[in-house]
C-alpha cells in the first residue's frame, strides 16, 4: 500500500478541474449576482450601490408574491406526483415485464421533447373550446366541464399536472437504476424468509435506495425552482398573472424588461430561500453523518 497521503493527493489532483469550475463559474457568479442586486443596473451592469432598494420593490410587487405562492403549490404537487408515479412505474417495470424497453421509452419520451411545443399541445388539450371538454360535448356529454386552465384560481394545478407528465419518467429511470443496483441476494434472502413482496419494498428496498430518492428529490427541486418553459408554453403566466413563477420573473426582468438589478435581487432571494429551506435537509443528508471511513 502506498502511503495514505499520496493517494489523497491523486484524489485532490483529480478534482482540480472541478475546483476551477466551482470557484470561477459558481462562486464567482453567485457573488456577482448578489453584488449586482444592490445596484441600479439596467440592461448592463453598473457598479453603484443603492442598498436594499431593489429588494423593497421586489416585495412590493404583487406579481412576485403570486409567483412565490405558485411555486409552493406547483412544487408540492410536482414533487409528490413525480415521486409516487415514478416509483410505481419503476417497481412495475421491474417485474420481468414483456416490452420493458418500449414502456420505458414511452414513459421517458416527454422528457426528450421541447416543452415549447408539448406545452402548446397540453394547452390545446386543456382548452375548454378545443380540447377534452370540446370533444366530450361533441360526443354528446354536453354538461361536461373542464376549464381549469382558463380559471385564474386553478390554472396552476394544470401546470403542475403537465409538469408531472413531463418529469415522472425521469424519476422512474432514476429509481429503476436504484432498483437494479440492489443486490440480488437481498431478494433471495427475503424469499427464503417468506416476507411479502410489498413489505420488502417498504422496509428494505426503499431505505436502501435512499440515495436515489435524494437524487430524484434534488433534481425535482431544482426543476421546481427553475420552472419556466412549461409556464411560458402553457399559460404565458396567465390568466392575468395567476400562473407566474419566480424564474419567469427573473428572466423577464433580465432581458425583456431590462432591469438586471431587480432580476438579480429576485435570483438572490431565490438563492437564499433555497439555502434556508433545503439547506438544513441537504446538510443532514450529506454533511452531518459520518457514514464512511475512508
Amino acid at each position: 500500500m502506498k502511503p495514505l497521503r499520496l493517494r489523497r493527493l491523486s484524489a485532490q489532483a483529480a478534482l482540480i478541474p472541478t475546483w476551477v469550475i466551482v470557484i470561477f463559474a459558481y462562486l464567482g457568479t453567485i457573488l456577482w449576482t448578489i453584488r449586482i442586486s444592490f445596484t441600479s443596473s439596467g440592461i448592463l451592469p453598473k457598479y453603484d450601490f443603492v442598498g436594499f432598494e431593489q429588494y423593497e420593490r421586489l416585495f412590493r410587487s404583487a406579481r412576485w408574491i403570486i409567483s412565490v405562492q405558485n411555486l409552493a403549490i406547483f412544487g408540492v404537487m410536482f414533487i409528490v406526483g413525480c415521486l409516487v408515479l415514478g416509483f410505481l412505474m419503476a417497481v412495475f417495470l421491474d417485474q420481468r415485464i414483456k416490452g420493458e424497453g418500449i414502456f420505458r421509452t414511452i414513459f421517458l419520451y416527454p422528457y426528450a421533447m421541447s416543452f415549447i411545443v408539448t406545452g402548446l399541445v397540453w394547452a390545446w388539450i386543456l382548452n375548454p373550446t378545443l380540447g377534452i371538454q370540446h370533444a366530450m360535448h361533441n360526443w354528446g356529454w354536453t354538461s361536461f366541464s373542464f376549464d381549469w386552465l382558463a380559471r385564474g384560481d386553478r390554472a396552476i394545478y394544470m401546470v403542475g399536472f403537465a409538469g408531472i407528465w413531463q418529469s415522472a419518467g425521469l424519476v422512474m429511470a432514476i429509481l429503476l437504476a436504484g432498483l437494479r443496483g440492489i443486490d440480488e441476494d437481498i431478494w433471495k434472502a427475503a424469499r427464503v424468509d417468506g416476507i411479502p413482496t410489498w413489505r420488502v419494498y417498504i422496509s428494505i428496498v426503499i431505505p436502501m435506495m435512499s440515495g436515489m430518492f435524494v437524487t430524484a428529490i434534488v433534481l425535482l427541486a431544482i426543476a421546481v425552482v427553475k420552472v419556466y418553459d412549461i409556464v411560458v408554453a402553457m399559460t404565458g403566466g396567465g390568466p392575468g398573472i395567476s400562473t407566474e413563477v419566480p424564474a419567469k420573473f427573473v428572466i423577464d426582468y433580465l432581458f425583456n424588461r431590462q432591469n438586471i438589478a431587480l432580476a438579480t435581487a429576485a435570483a438572490s432571494v431565490m438563492f437564499v430561500a433555497v439555502l434556508v429551506v433545503l439547506g438544513p435537509w441537504l446538510y443532514r443528508q450529506y454533511f452531518r453523518k459520518e457514514r464512511r471511513a475512508a
Binding site: Y26, T29, I30, I222, Y228, A247, A267, F271
Partner: peptide, 10 residues
C-alpha cells in the same frame, strides 16, 4: 448544489 438552483440566465 446551491449553484444548481440559480436560473441559468443569471
Amino acid at each position: 448544489l446551491m449553484g444548481a438552483f440559480i436560473p441559468y440566465q443569471v
